[in-house]
């Protein structure tokens, strides 16, 4: 083996290991989001949606689809990536990764790549499930795919950081529960922020999730709360921050090495 070159076998080994874990729990992994989504449609789409007006010319049931997919992307990306790196720390098998000729970049590509793949697949499954309940249009499919992948990648990276930071299973759940879920619910997943009183609209603009959901919804229906450029800027900005954090973690060995 040439010693200075990219360790592609290493990346592939990690990726495959992580995907195998996904495969072993395929039924739960897929069934849970599908059931949750269906429930959302029953509750929001049918029960409430019937009484809701169209939002910007889009029926309420269809309007919530991008938000639902985003919600899944956030939670699944964070969960899969954080668990993927936390579990070896917990069981002690991390010794092998730390003693392997794998660079930080390769480690991240393997773990975050696998988590991104999983949540992107789940996002598409949610999309397909939604299509059974409501008519869906996708005006900008390329942008849709780009937002989907970028979001999955940045939240997987974020999850990876949480997994390294966490010292126990409670901490692993802490940020998703206390930060991500509330921000998502307040971030216009189920409504347009235009319906909020002006003061709350201003507050919402400080919620980064608003930008992520808005851009994604734009790729479906062509209308959005905040405009596609700020959306893209926020998505890329979040990705960049996570990348810098990961870089710092590996440089200092933070919570990975003594």
């Amino acid at each position: 083996m040439s010693s200075r070159t990219f360790n592609a076998y290493g990346v592939w080994a990690i990726y495959r290991f992580e995907m195998a874990r996904f495969g072993r729990t395929l039924l739960q992994s897929v069934l849970t989001p599908v059931i949750t989504t269906s429930l959302y449609f029953v509750v929001f789409g049918a029960a409430i949606g019937a009484r809701m007006e169209e939002i910007g010319g889009v029926p309420y049931g269809a309007f919530i689809v991008p938000g639902l997919i985003m919600l899944t992307l956030f939670t699944e990306s964070i969960f899969n990536a954080s668990f993927g790196i936390y579990f070896p720390k917990f069981t002690g098998t991390i010794y092998e990764l730390l003693s392997a000729p794998v660079s930080p970049l390769e480690t991240v590509l393997g773990y975050v790549g696998a988590a991104t793949t999983k949540s992107a697949i789940l996002g598409l499954i949610i999309l397909a499930t939604s299509a059974l309940f409501v008519p869906i249009r996708i005006l900008h499919p390329v942008w849709m795919a780009a937002f989907l992948l970028l979001t999955a990648a940045s939240f997987s990276l974020f999850g990876f950081i949480i997994g390294i930071w966490a010292k126990n299973f409670e901490q692993l759940q802490l940020i998703p529960m206390l930060v991500v879920t509330p921000l998502t619910f307040l971030g216009g997943a189920f409504y347009s922020i235009a319906v909020l009183p002006p003061a709350w609209q201003t507050v919402s603009l400080f919620n980064p999730v608003v930008y992520l959901i808005s851009g994604f919804r734009w790729s479906f229906y062509g209308s959005s709360d905040v405009g596609v450029v700020p959306s893209l800027a926020f998505t890329l900005g979040f990705l960049l921050i996570c990348l810098l954090l990961v870089g710092w973690i590996f440089k200092t060995g933070y919570r990975l090495k003594n």
């Binding site: 290493g10 592939w12 080994a13 495959r16 290991f17 069981t91 098998t93 010794y95 392997a100 794998v102």
Partner: peptide, 27 residues
């Protein structure tokens, strides 16, 4: 390296775990 503490991936098979190790080390 064979570390002092036993630490294995419980859910993997013997074969997949050694194949993983080989790949991880760039072979």
């Amino acid at each position: 390296l064979v570390p002092q503490e036993l630490a294995t991936d419980s859910f993997e098979t013997v074969w997949t775990t050694v194949r993983f190790s080989r790949g991880l080390f760039g072979c």
